[in-house]
Amino acid sequence: MTALARVMFVQTVLVASPMASAALARPAGKTYTIVIDKMKFGAVSAGLGVGDTII
C-alpha cells in the first residue's frame, strides 16, 4: 500500500466511524402528534425523547 493510499484509508475510517457508531447507538425516532385546541397545547407523551418528531 502506498503512503497516499494509507493516508486516504485512515481518513476514510476516521470520518466514517463516528457516523456509523452514532447511527447504531440510537434507535429510529418515533412520531408523536400534539393537538393544539383553543391556542393551548395538549398533553405531551411521557415517551417523547431526542430524535422524535412532533406533528
Rank of each mutant, 00 (worst) to 15 (best):
P18F: 04
G29D: 02
A28M: 05
V44G: 02
T12Y: 11
A16I: 08
A5H: 08
V50C: 06
A46W: 06
I54F: 00
G29K: 01
P18S: 03
S45F: 00
F41A: 15
S45R: 02
F41S: 15
V44Q: 01
S45T: 01
A22V: 11
V15N: 05
K40I: 06
Q11D: 10
A25T: 07
L4W: 04
A16N: 05
V7L: 12
K30Y: 03
A46S: 10
A25M: 07
A25G: 12
A20Q: 07
V35Y: 08
T2P: 09
L24V: 04
A46I: 04
T2D: 12
G47P: 02
D37Y: 14
D37M: 08
A16S: 14
V50P: 11
F41E: 10
P27C: 06
S21T: 15
G47E: 02
A3P: 14
A20R: 05
T31E: 00
R26W: 10
P27Q: 13
S21W: 14
V15I: 07
D52G: 01
K30A: 07
A22N: 12
G47N: 04
A28F: 03
I54S: 01
G51D: 01
P27I: 07
V10S: 11
P18L: 04
P27D: 14
D52S: 00
T12S: 14
M8F: 15
Y32Q: 01
L4M: 08
L4T: 08
F9L: 15
V13M: 08
A43L: 07
A43E: 11
L4Y: 06
S17Q: 09
I34F: 04
G47L: 00
Q11T: 11
R6M: 09
L48S: 03
M1N: 11
Q11P: 03
A46E: 13
A46H: 09
L4N: 12
S21Y: 12
L14K: 08
D37C: 07
T2Q: 08
V35P: 10
A16R: 04
A16M: 13
P18G: 05
K30W: 03
L4I: 07
G42L: 05
M8R: 15
R26G: 13
V44L: 04
A43R: 12
A28C: 08
V13T: 12
K30C: 01
S45P: 03
T12I: 07
A28S: 11
G42Q: 05
V35L: 13
M39T: 13
I34V: 14
I55V: 11
K38V: 04
Y32C: 02
F41D: 05
F9Y: 13
Y32H: 01
S21E: 12
A20I: 09
